[in-house]
Simulated assay, not measured.
Amino acid sequence: MSLQAPPAKSPVPQPPPAARRAGLLTPWILLLPGLLWLVVFFLVPILTSVGASVQTGNADQGYRLTWDWGNYGHGLSDYLPQYGHSLLYSVLCTVFCLLLGYPVAYCIAFRGGRFKSLLMALVVVPSFTSFLIRTIAWKTILSDNGPIVSVLNDLHVLNATTAMGWTVGNHVLASPAAVVFGMVYNFLPFMILPLYTSLEKIDPRLHEAGSDLYCDTFATWRRVTLPLSMPGVVGGTLLTFIPAVGDYINAQLLGNPNTGVVGQKIEDLFLRQTDGYPVGSAISVVLMAGTLILVLLYIRKAGTEDLI
């Protein structure tokens, strides 16, 4: 029996050099519109703010680039309480949104049935109204004659919150509690949507498997549902915290002079003070850099491998 050599493989045809170059350039061509958008509307404004933060002068005589880094010192020392309020309110808003949004997203994902789309629409529809109008509506909801304040007074809750400094006497309006209430309402959809998307991907049969392994409902949620939904938790907390830390509408409409946040001071320095541009820019840069650092630390701690 004679052995025959295997037939020689025909060489794979190679595309011409022009086609190879076009293939290498295609991804960059597709990225070009997005890169241009980021450069024009993200990088340029940031560089403009950084440049304005080291200028001196006023609106009447003009501003000059003098590399005055003392603007950052003034911004930090003069407005440190506002930084604290912005951070505190945004963290509380994120925590309350998570506590309220997770059960809502869980019920829609696993108990919504054929009404899932309708329930998610009810979550999103309030956002179609102006942010400003929704915040003003809370002035009526939290008014002294409203049902919420009456119930809180009957339960003597306001006595405890007033002692903690979160309300003022028998009033909820013009207090830190009112600011947090408004922020939670306005940013709650930003938490529910990522949570629902993450929970909806979980196979319900995993819950049945947990029951078969003698796990109760809480143990199944803790060992199965929560770990699998962590991408939604991380994404929801980021989408809530980032806009909340820069929000100032709720503090301006629902708070008092003692609940001021950084955004209010930035608006005041830019729009009402003739020499406020440099310090206002410095405050903006510090707020942006601080938020970026906090977000990066949080992402590194939480992990990003499942966030896609």
Rank of each mutant, 00 (worst) to 15 (best):
L92W: 09
G236V: 07
A59H: 11
I141N: 01
F190Q: 04
V149G: 00
K201F: 00
E267Y: 15
S281V: 03
L35H: 08
Q55H: 10
T291P: 03
M191T: 06
Q264K: 01
S2D: 08
D306T: 15
G246I: 08
A105L: 03
I29M: 13
A8Q: 15
I308C: 08
G280I: 02
A19W: 08
Y72W: 10
L195V: 04
A282M: 07
G236Q: 06
V179Y: 00
S2Y: 05
T140G: 02
M191F: 07
T135N: 03
P81S: 10
I46W: 13
E305N: 10
L239N: 07
L122I: 14
F131D: 11
S130L: 10
G75N: 04
L43C: 11
Y196K: 05
K9P: 03
L193V: 15
V279K: 09
S77L: 12
H207F: 14
G101V: 05
C215I: 07
Q252W: 05
L47Y: 14
G146L: 04
Y63L: 15
T237L: 14
A52S: 10
L297I: 11
G101W: 04
T56F: 06
Q61T: 15
N186C: 02
L36R: 06
A5P: 06
R111S: 12
S143K: 00
P231T: 10
A289H: 06
L269E: 04
K265N: 12
V12K: 15
E208R: 13
S130D: 08
I249V: 15
G57A: 07
I283N: 01
G62Q: 07
I148K: 03
I46A: 09
S281E: 05
L253T: 02
V262K: 00
M183D: 01
L173Q: 00
M191K: 03
L188D: 01
S130I: 11
P16A: 11
T140V: 10
L76K: 06
E305M: 07
S130H: 10
I108N: 00
N159A: 09
I249D: 02
I133G: 03
P126H: 02
I141K: 04
L213A: 12
R134I: 06
L206A: 13
L213K: 03
V234G: 00
K265D: 04
P7I: 09
P103H: 10
I136C: 02
T161W: 11
S130Y: 13
D60C: 05
S127H: 02
M183C: 06
S10M: 09
A302G: 08
A177K: 02
Y214I: 08
N186Q: 11
L195A: 00
P15T: 13
G303L: 10
P16Q: 07
G101K: 06
R205V: 09
A109S: 10
T217E: 08
Y185C: 01
V279P: 02
K201T: 02
F131A: 11
V286W: 02
R205H: 05
P103L: 09
S229F: 04
I202L: 12
K301C: 12
A109T: 03
Y248C: 05
V124T: 12
L31M: 14
L287C: 02
Q14Y: 13
